[in-house]
């Protein structure tokens, strides 16, 4: 019996230690959850460091800029939209191929990195790299660089804000609404900021059909990122 006592006390000590460790671990987990919730509850500009310092978003922005530049030469897009499909302009090329692909990549950056500010940073990089390289890749820089850059930047800001506002909603609503409205925002910004410098103001009769085209293209753009997010069950 005497021999057993020390072992009992040792066991009790071990059990107490284990309990303490468990409690500490739980406390740590609770603290972490609280931190995460605090970070999720409100928008902070300091959250931008998570995407600015992330290699993924930087490489993604570079790849998106070069890919769009390579895939959609200005004259090719213009010929396809106005001479083959006979759509009114200006803005049909932005609504269907360019804006659609850009919005799809912005939503993909959010779906992969799970950061609401990732689209903003990708759009910022796109605005710089794409617009700087466009004149050297056979582009038609009829508007100043600043205007084209601001259009891309405001698109990223709009998509990020919409993702913040729709936080906690169903994935369908979040992705498809953001895609459609984001593409429409980009088209509207081009109408106001870019086209008046070269092609002129948009005709009022062309606005409805181009807006519908932009909404449909935005919905189509959101499909692949939505399917990816659903497959990964990202619920933020």
């Amino acid at each position: 019996m005497n021999k057993d006592k020390p072992s009992d006390t040792k066991d009790e000590g071990k059990i107490n230690k284990e309990k303490d460790m468990k409690e500490k671990g739980e406390a740590k987990v609770e603290q972490k959850e609280e931190n995460v919730l605090c970070r999720k509850k409100s928008f902070k500009i300091s959250d931008l460091r998570y995407v600015v310092l992330d290699p993924f978003t930087n490489i993604f922005g570079l790849v998106v800029s070069l890919l769009v530049l390579f895939l959609f030469p200005f004259k090719g897009v213009s010929t396809l939209m106005h001479d083959v499909l006979h759509l009114p302009g200006p803005g049909a090329g932005i609504a269907f191929p360019i804006g659609m692909v850009l919005v799809a990549f912005l939503l993909a950056s959010y779906a992969i990195s799970k950061q609401e500010l990732a689209p903003f940073w990708v759009a910022f990089l796109f605005g710089i790299i794409y617009n700087l390289l466009a004149p050297y890749a056979g582009g038609i820089p009829f508007a100043p660089f600043v205007n084209r850059f601001i259009a891309a930047l405001l698109l990223g800001l709009g998509v990020s804000c919409m993702l913040y506002l729709l936080k906690g909603k169903a994935l369908e609503i979040k992705y498809f609404l953001t895609g459609a409205l984001g593409n429409l925002i980009y088209l509207s910004l081009f109408w106001v900021l870019v086209f008046p410098f070269g092609k002129g103001w948009v005709k009022p009769s062309a606005v409805p059909i181009l807006s519908i085209l932009a909404l449909c293209a935005g919905l189509a753009a959101a499909l692949v990122p939505y399917l990816y997010a659903r497959s990964k069950r990202i619920v933020i």
Partner: peptide
């Protein structure tokens, strides 16, 4: 808007 059709650029794009 029409009149500046460049089908070579369109082919290249496709």
């Amino acid at each position: 808007m029409c009149g500046s059709a460049d089908f070579a650029a369109l082919d290249m794009m496709l």
